[in-house]
């Protein structure tokens, strides 16, 4: 295929500039010819002109080979090796984060937020139709000094998705009670407040809306 303007210059520079338009011998801009065809807009010229049709055949031929190449690709169904390798690294990572007090103000036992959150989420997940999302825990009291960790009750905020019809406020309350029980029985952490935010509601059809929050 004859071209008026053979590619010149380093490819990257040419890519980002509008200069270097390639014109077919009929005068049409090759990039435009291709683009219009892709967008389903050809005109009588591009359909009949030998240069344009040749250019379009070339592009079509390229796309055909791409389709063939796609067919040859193996199915990537099994990500087990990938998962293993990724999780091996992830599980060794440490993350900075606050620790929360276990026990009373006299005790010197602490638990990292991620571990307590995990327990709270599992508790919420155990309720039918409830799925837990974000769970944050923070001391209610301000620190007594710059280097001291804070003892005292904590505030828990958990986001949940409720999959049910019925009273959402009641569902939120059930979550709250479950968390309070978990705090006492599974952890031993003093909880001052539980904020349950219902971030999504699913009916059995799977369509959702976003309601507000219940304290």
């Amino acid at each position: 295929m004859a071209m008026n303007n053979p590619s010149a210059g380093p490819p990257d520079d040419m890519d980002d500039r509008e200069g270097g338009k390639e014109r077919l011998p009929c005068g049409r801009d090759l990039a435009q010819v291709w683009q219009q065809w892709e967008e389903g807009q050809t005109d009588s010229h591009s359909r009949s002109c030998p240069h344009c049709t040749a250019a379009l055949e070339d592009l079509d031929g390229l796309k055909h080979v791409v389709r063939q190449a796609r067919e040859e690709e193996p199915e990537y169904e099994d990500a087990n090796v990938l998962v293993e390798r990724v999780m091996d690294v992830v599980q060794l990572e440490l993350r900075p984060g606050r620790t929360l007090p276990l026990g009373t103000t006299e005790d010197d036992d602490w638990i990292v937020e991620a571990a307590a959150a995990k327990a709270f989420r599992a508790a919420a997940d155990s309720l039918p139709g409830v799925r837990a999302g974000s769970c944050r825990i923070a001391p209610l009291n301000a620190p007594s000094g710059p280097r001291r960790r804070v003892r005292g009750p904590v505030a828990v905020r958990i986001e949940v998705v409720i999959d049910m019809t019925g009273d959402l406020q009641e569902a939120a309350e059930r979550v709250r009670q479950r968390l309070l029980v978990t705090a006492q029985r599974a952890l031993g952490i003093e909880v001052g407040s539980v904020d349950v935010a219902i971030v999504d509601v699913l009916d059995s059809g799977g369509h959702g809306e976003r309601p507000g929050r219940w304290r």
Partner: peptide, 18 residues
């Protein structure tokens, strides 16, 4: 398992071992 416990103490490498 060590943690990065405490708000002001930094771990040298950020990675722990078991």
């Amino acid at each position: 398992r060590p943690g990065l416990a405490g708000l002001l103490r930094a771990s040298p490498s950020g990675k722990g071992m078991l």
